[in-house]
Design a binder for these strands. Structure first.
Lengths: 346, 346
DNA sequence: TTGAAAGCGCTAACAA
DNA sequence: TTGTTAGCGCTTTCAA
């Protein structure tokens, strides 16, 4: 970052006021859209703003307003999963759109490891942002508690799984999709196809989304053969492993509900390798409707769609809402519907 | 974001000073690590800081220093590619690590569409950040020019491709990997394997990385059959299309250098579908060494590795360096080496 | 409807 | 080595 002393100093409110022939207060009112300024004057001010290319100094503003028009997005994911999965990127896009529309900055906080948690806690407690959007994926994650203690308004992405009532408690606002309902629909579809040996490749069971999908599976198939439920980890490699194990333990399996599209793609690979036709011998359903995966695999994947970008947008909207009049009107959790997308695999 | 009026007011410098029995100036010096404070006093100040849980108010600080300790990361990608490719996520991680180490905030600016470009330009020109890290992928992208005009110190991710000398010019600092050299090494390896009909599936040729890799291919195979060069788009689907076209036009092709791992994976799929064995009948090399892809495909992919995270780290480091003494010592471009990773596909 | 003036919390001369 | 003081650019009472 090179020396900026040579740059022309930015015009201040003062300069605009001088040029428009009014007081600083008036310019401030016009800039902030406060009513109660005569239109003729306002026009003059706007012209001066344009001519000077005036942009408000956010630091000066937030020094007095004690607001920052900035929101932190905290992504805590020690594993490499974040980077093999377009999930976060999509959600980020939704968040970004909504924040941009409200002229609020997105401060990105990526963490790995426990040390970083403390850092994030300090940052949030430092009062540098007006709120936080947090992705908390693991049941034992200390981050939610830390954030709670920081006293910053927070919306979680995905149903938080902790049980500690102090650290956010059951009332902590979050946005999620209907993991359980979506899973139910998928499994019912498989059953409706006449499949009698429906298996489930789960996600990592320290994440609520994986647990909820498993619950949905059980809602339909309460007394499923335990060997038909194999733990995966949301990755293609995990899906492969699980599928192999499934085939070895239950060669008569005729349907698989995978907890996400990535594991489904791994499962498909193993099924092909073992000479099972999809969907004729084994029907497969995924979860997410991650287009680049679901549409590209062979055969194209029947899957449960969730609108990830919309979830991000909603997280931001809920956080921003709190700025308005209704302090306690925050909903505890918002659950978006899912829908089954039929392609060739089931 | 709920009402914060109920929150305890944060302690100020003033409060710390009072508690430690010194002046504000002294506290400021201690907090900022300025030398020249007697150790006994400094210790007292630090204790008061701890007891009060004092955190400096960034707004107040930057109002007077005219620095923000914040950097914008601009990702302009109208396509969905950002979200199908862990590339950006990895680079972001590198950037984040470096910025964090220097206590600098990361403000994320995602853009789509031309309207957003103006917005980004205004934001950067508004002087809210100390610098920008920009990913400019397309040759005709207006963003670099806009950013240049904003007058903010900038480092580009990937060699910028514009020719307009005004908009950054050849001197604009950037970080890239040795796309051309890496491609050369890959193609040489293929030739060294005794392959006589080496094809290239390119990336989208409006991106410098794709162009550079093609140039590398041509460095080795200057007089290649034009039908052996097919344009892809860095996606698996594009790789499939290109591979089909290749097989139809030149059934005797015995090696493929794909511009990235994703297209290579598509090519592999088509080769298997057409009954060609890899590497026996056709050897395949990718680019990126995107682990989840390169290690998972069948057979595991020989590919050109680039250290994406390191590139991100370096971008941040170069931008931050400018804050120091050496204003003009900024290197124009930093090109990181690549290395061939041999797996089973070639 | 408009303006004057008092700070927001901090750094950076300058004095002591 | 430490303290005093003058703002940084803005919003927001309060008066006019």
């Amino acid at each position: 970052m090179t020396d900026e002393s040579s740059a022309a100093p930015r015009p201040t409110l003062e300069a605009v006021a001088a040029r428009a022939g009014v007081s600083r207060a008036t310019v401030s009112r016009v800039v902030n859209g406060d009513a109660g300024v005569r239109e003729t004057l306002a026009a003059k001010v706007r012209q001066a703003v344009d001519e000077l290319g005036y942009v408000p100094n956010r630091a000066a503003r937030s020094l007095v307003t004690r607001r920052h028009d900035a929101v932190a997005v905290v992504i805590a994911e020690p594993e490499t999963r974040v980077f093999a999965d377009p999930f976060f990127a999509l959600q980020l896009r939704g968040i970004s759109k909504e924040l941009t529309a409200h002229d609020v900055q997105l401060v990105l906080l990526l963490t790995e490891g426990r040390d970083d948690h403390e850092r994030v806690g300090r940052y949030l407690a430092g009062g540098h942002v007006d709120g936080a959007l947090v992705f908390s994926l693991h049941l034992d994650d200390p981050l939610p508690g830390i954030i709670r203690r920081a006293g910053v308004p927070t919306v979680f992405g995905g149903r938080p799984g902790w049980s500690d009532p102090v650290s956010g408690g059951p009332g902590a606002p979050y946005v999620d999709c209907d993991n359980r309902g979506g899973a139910r629909e998928a499994v019912r579809h498989l059953v409706g196809l006449g499949r009698g040996r429906v298996a489930h490749i789960t996600g990592p069971l320290d994440q609520t989304s994986a647990v909820d999908r498993l619950d949905g599976f059980r809602d339909v198939l309460a007394d499923a053969d335990p060997r038909l439920i194999v733990e995966g980890d949301f990755t293609p490699a995990g899906g492969e492993r699980a599928m192999r194990q499934l085939l070895d333990a239950c060669p008569d399996v005729d349907a698989v509900f995978a907890a996400n599209d990535l594991s489904a793609s791994g499962a498909l690979r193993v099924l092909r390798e073992r000479g099972r036709r999809v969907p004729d011998d084994v029907a497969v359903i995924g979860f997410d409707d991650m287009l680049p995966v679901a549409e590209q695999v062979d055969p194209p994947l029947t899957t449960v769609r969730q609108d990830i970008e919309e979830m991000g947008r909603l997280m931001a909207r809920i956080l921003l809402q709190g700025r308005g009049e209704s302090p306690a009107a925050t909903p505890a959790g918002v659950v978006l519907p899912t829908s089954l997308v039929r392609r060739a695999s089931a």
